[in-house]
Amino acid sequence: MARYGMALDYKNCINCKACEVACKEENGVLLGADKHRIWVGVKEIEGEFPLLSIASNTFMPSQCQHCEHAPCQEVCPTHATHYDENGVVRVDPDKCILCSYCMNACPYDARYVDDRTMTVDKCNFCSDTRLARGETTTACQATCPTKVRIFGDLDDPNSEISQVLRDREHFSLKPHLGTKPKLFYLI
């Protein structure tokens, strides 16, 4: 099966938050809920006027990193958090006991409690909405006006994401933790 990942051309992000809206709409995330599945972090401008560092002012779109070696999966006592056949880290709400251990273990603060099911939820690459319908893009990707996101199969050498990761330098967040994130930030 596939091994899904996402590359983010993050310097193109304009912090319009269309991805947050699209994710909520597509995946039925509670309206009004703050930074639930997806969010954009703002690095503020450093320095005193007029010596402002323009380079310091960036937007960092983020969501679950779909770690290949996911601490949240490792700590889950009931296997509610698991890898699906596409390498996507998923939560089975029937098995989640809401012990919150995964929320503590996730180094990226990617998990939250869904107030309706009282279980833990997070981005699942639209697996039970768009991917289940046979689409090949995620909602946040499809809506992005500056085409920040490239979603696809890392195992397929001809996929757009594989090509771009071959061509461009990229980094991942907190790599020293050994979580092997499948979200790649393009430089």
């Binding site: 700590v75 889950c76 006592p77 009931t78 296997h79 509610a80 029937d94 098995k95 989640c96 006991i97 809401l98 012990c99 009282m118 279980t119």
Partner: peptide, 17 residues
């Protein structure tokens, strides 16, 4: 504190992590 203690007893046995 555990949100679903009954589920815990079931799945601790059925799918132990």
């Amino acid at each position: 504190e555990i949100g679903h203690p009954i589920t815990m007893m079931i799945y601790n046995v059925l799918s132990p992590g």
